[in-house]
Amino acid sequence: MIEIVLFYVGAVAAILGAAGVVLARTPLRGALWLIFTLCAVAVLYLLLEAPFVAAMQVLVYAGAIMVLFVFVIMLLNLGPEAGARPAYVSVAKASGLLACVYLGWRLVAALSGSGQKAVDGSVKNIGVLLVTDYLFAFEAVSVLLLVAVVGAVVLGLRRLS
């Protein structure tokens, strides 16, 4: 019972927050709404017995990445006019929205009622998987991060010439 209540609270909060991101007048408000949404989704992860993903959601996304977002918004001094969007409705927008609704509906229809149990999302299990089955991916990501660092230095370095 309590799970169902928590699910609906989390789901409604996530949807409201997402709407807030899109409708917010200023970029900063949008970013704050995004933090709200991410935390609400973290609640849903907890209900799916995935505490590790929930913790990462709060720590990495709602924490570190959103700090970066807010930092960039403040640094660029984006005011309300920066978020001004053209309000027209185009064929592309309408068909994109329709496709989203259709695909989302088909997905929900396909996935609901399958009665699948979630995989073991405990921290311990993830840790074991990371150094056994997914050892290569775990190591390969370090190369990916290294490339990102080198790229940032190459693009950001100011040469004295």
Binding site: A137, A140, V143, L144, V147, A148, V150, G151, V154, L155
Partner: peptide, 13 residues
């Protein structure tokens, strides 16, 4: 996926 990201990230730069 990691391979695609590694090569893409390098080539973006």
């Amino acid at each position: 996926f990691i391979g695609i990201e590694t090569m893409s990230l390098a080539v973006y730069v």
